[in-house]
Write a protein that binds this DNA or RNA. Sequence first.
RNA 1: GACCCCUUCGUCUAGUGGCCUAGGACUCCAGGUUUUCAUCCUGGCAACACGGGUUCGAACCCCGUAGGGGUCGCCA
Length: 435
Amino acid sequence: MKVRTRFAPSPTGNVHIGNMRAAIYNWLFARHHGGEFLLRVEDTDRERSTQEAIQTLLDAMAWLKLDVDGEPLYQSTRMEIHLEAAELLLSKGLAYKEDKGGLGQGECIIFKMPGTDASFEDGIKGSLSTAAENMQDFVIVRSNGTPVFHLANVLDDIEQGITHVIRGDDHIENTYRHMALYQALGADVPNFAHLPMIINAQGKPYSKRDGDAFVGDFREKGFLGDALFNYLALLGWSPGDDREVMTRDEMVEAFDLARCQSSPAQVDLRKLTWMNGEYMLKLPTEEFIATCFCEIEKGGIEAAPDYAKAVFGLVRERVKTVVDIVPMVAYLFTEEFEYEAKAVRKKLQKDGVREILEQVKSIFQALEIFDEASTDQAIHDFIETSGLGFGAVMAPLRIAISGIQSGPDLFPMLEVLGRERVTGRIDRTLAQFLA
RNA sequence: GACCCCUUCGUCUAGUGGCCUAGGACUCCAGGUUUUCAUCCUGGCAACACGGGUUCGAACCCCGUAGGGGUCGCCA
């Protein structure tokens, strides 16, 4: 039988990474088995399920390249069918009506649990079981006439022909109920696999107040969709060898529920950042350039396209996340950049520095051509003849033209800036700190 | 509280009775290469929750303890 999995989120405007990881595992599992990955939007909460929220969800999936087979099923369109099924259960004596009081809304429909012990083979956790007395009858249709999650969820999974339900382990107890529902409805019980939760840096489950656990937040923090996908895939699963940075195809090929962890995992932003850097490096140059333009525009920087491209080339291999870009290149687009106080104190305001910078400036002015090779040669000649150390010249020069101690390779950076800017910046430095 | 689940370096993990003086990755530290910055290379720190069994032998099997988590809704 063809494998069919699904992702069934409620569109509330934010998708938690725990849910998104479940989506990734469902996707990986389906693709591994040559099956289908379906989407079902559980939008029965009319309050929160706005068109915007649905779009946010779709955007997040597109960002992570989770392609869906077939059209999404909107749960809100199926209420009649859910209700009919409840009536059927009622007529078969598998459910009953009762006024449970409390809210005083009249009678609701309650599903009758079979009263037997239950067990199943979980795809990740192995054999799971519970005794009959732990499972009470439960409401499937509210007294206001709307179907409850359990009923709708099971009916829709049947409708979509889901063969493998891969979800968070907070659903384990529900699984016993759902299995009984499948049986009462005369449907085949699918395979279940329960993923452990993702926990925060304190080792606790993410709460609504942990602002950094939504998919959109990771995008805003400058992570790439492919990198987050890879990272999340490895958070709770491993291919069994030492591979970590893997292509989609490799992950699809290697994915196996049996290799999934059954204990919770913590997100480590440092490792995600490292992995993101690996993906930044792999980005095709045009894509990297396009991303950079997009970022500086957001950062309010205006620049001539050719000059900007040259600047981006300078930081190509150093960018770890998308949001690194602007701070890393900002001083190359303005003459109003700041000087780092510590750098000035340690490397600039020292005896002899003034003379060195003055000499470097005049050497640069005398150059026939001002480019990477010529400045490199000129500085080396200067060091040779003056007897100065390389660092004694390079460090002050770097700070004079950039304001900071670290940054791109210096000679290419000189070429990109051009003679005029470079000498101008040296003058400014001299006037400001070494007058 | 009851029931269920979980427990290897700080973090993600490998490990399914001998290959384990427990391997890899991230982070951190120390050297080295690069006469700038970064990269890179080498090395280092660092873990089987605890206690009992079973066994010639246990991170791996069993029991218990502790700790953590989940569920117990006319939420999903």
